[in-house]
């Protein structure tokens, strides 16, 4: 009887290595894409193009990391694109009003956290599904941003602020450094703090988490606030890059962020996810986008390719999980 109850040790070991293998596969895919594109068009590997690619990918990568916290709790945050757009408006108005840059950034991040808290409130107190409450914010935040600016674009005349986005440090674009700045603490938080454990527990089985003394509402507030802060941070970076505040910016980025997260092996049913997965996912999407531009592939096709890629990667991931 004891032998039948024991799963074969081999299967266990395979399961343990599984997430590592999946990450390797994704990295391999990313490398393969780069090699193919370099052969197809030598411009791909130039410093200029790589810097450009890293800048494009960085912002989605940060959004995807924030999104991952939420998806691990079996939720979804559709508002992140709108928060990005709204944050560009907030920071542009603050800088225009003469608020010191660092304070303006801090206030913008707090606005992002506040929006996340509102989502937490809607989910835990009003009992709304995450999809609905964040969908509502998605549309209304863009509206609020437009009302605040009367539909116009606020330009940012602070040179020091906008220059940051074009700078490089050690040959790597500053925007990509921001990804590292964000994802290292995010990794420590998710994998080495008890709150990270609680995110997984709530996503896996809310009732059991609650009966184990985990505060489910607090955990949900935390996940959505983090997602909001990350999105506001991306808003700040975007404002630096384009030098304007406009509520219609970052249209559809929430879907890119969710796609990156899912490609990175995060389960939409919750309780499965990592930080490195969504990062790689975001850069796979960025490479496809960049490569398609270089090869003069119609941008309509880029969308189709992205869709097919999501289906293929997630399908194989599910297949492996089931057999593993």
């Amino acid at each position: 009887m004891t032998t039948t109850e024991l799963a074969p040790p081999g299967a266990q070991a395979a399961k343990r290595n599984y997430s590592f293998l999946f990450a390797l596969t994704l990295l391999g895919l990313l490398a393969a894409l780069c090699i193919v594109l370099t052969i197809a068009n030598p411009i791909f590997m130039t410093d200029r193009n790589i810097s450009n690619l890293l800048r494009q990918g960085s912002m989605i990568a940060i959004l995807a990391v924030g999104q991952t916290f939420v998806i691990i709790t079996a939720g979804i945050d559709l508002s992140v694109g709108a928060i990005v757009g709204f944050s560009t408006v907030v920071i542009a108005l603050l800088i225009q009003a003469g608020v010191p840059t660092s304070l303006a950034i801090l206030i913008t991040l707090m606005v992002g956290a506040g929006i996340g808290m509102f989502h937490g409130f809607g989910i835990t107190r009003m009992g709304l599904p995450p999809f609905i409450i964040t969908l509502a914010t998605l549309t209304s935040l863009r509206g609020i941003g437009l009302v605040m600016t009367n539909g116009s674009t606020i330009s940012i005349n602070d040179k020091g602020f906008t220059e940051f986005a074009t700078q490089s440090f050690l040959g790597i674009p500053s925007l990509f450094w921001m990804v590292i700045l964000v994802s290292v603490p995010a990794y420590v938080f998710l994998d080495h703090s008890r709150w990270g454990r609680y995110l997984f527990a709530v996503g896996s089985n809310r009732e059991s988490a609650r009966l184990s003394g985990v505060s489910v509402p607090r955990t949900i507030y935390l996940a959505y606030s983090l997602s909001g802060v990350f999105a506001a941070f991306v808003g700040v970076l975007l404002a630096m890059r384009i030098g304007i505040g406009n509520a219609t910016q970052a249209d559809g980025w929430e879907l890119l962020a969710i796609a990156s997260t899912v490609i990175g092996g995060t389960s939409l049913f919750g309780a499965i996810g990592s930080i490195h997965g969504p990062l790689i996912g975001a850069f796979i999407l960025a490479v496809i986008n960049n490569g398609a531009n270089l090869l003069n592939v119609n941008s309509f096709w880029q969308r189709i390719i992205t869709g097919v890629l999501i289906i293929v990667i997630v399908f194989f991931d599910q297949l492996r999980r089931r057999s593993g």
Partner: peptide
């Protein structure tokens, strides 16, 4: 299944879930 366990998470995490506030090292686990 429904109330007692987080079945798709590791055994260790399940066992420690009620006591993570004790298993800390500064802000970390």
């Amino acid at each position: 299944r429904d109330q007692g366990l987080n079945v798709n998470l590791p055994i260790g995490l399940n066992i420690n879930l009620p006591i993570y506030d004790r298993l800390t090292w500064g802000p970390l686990v």
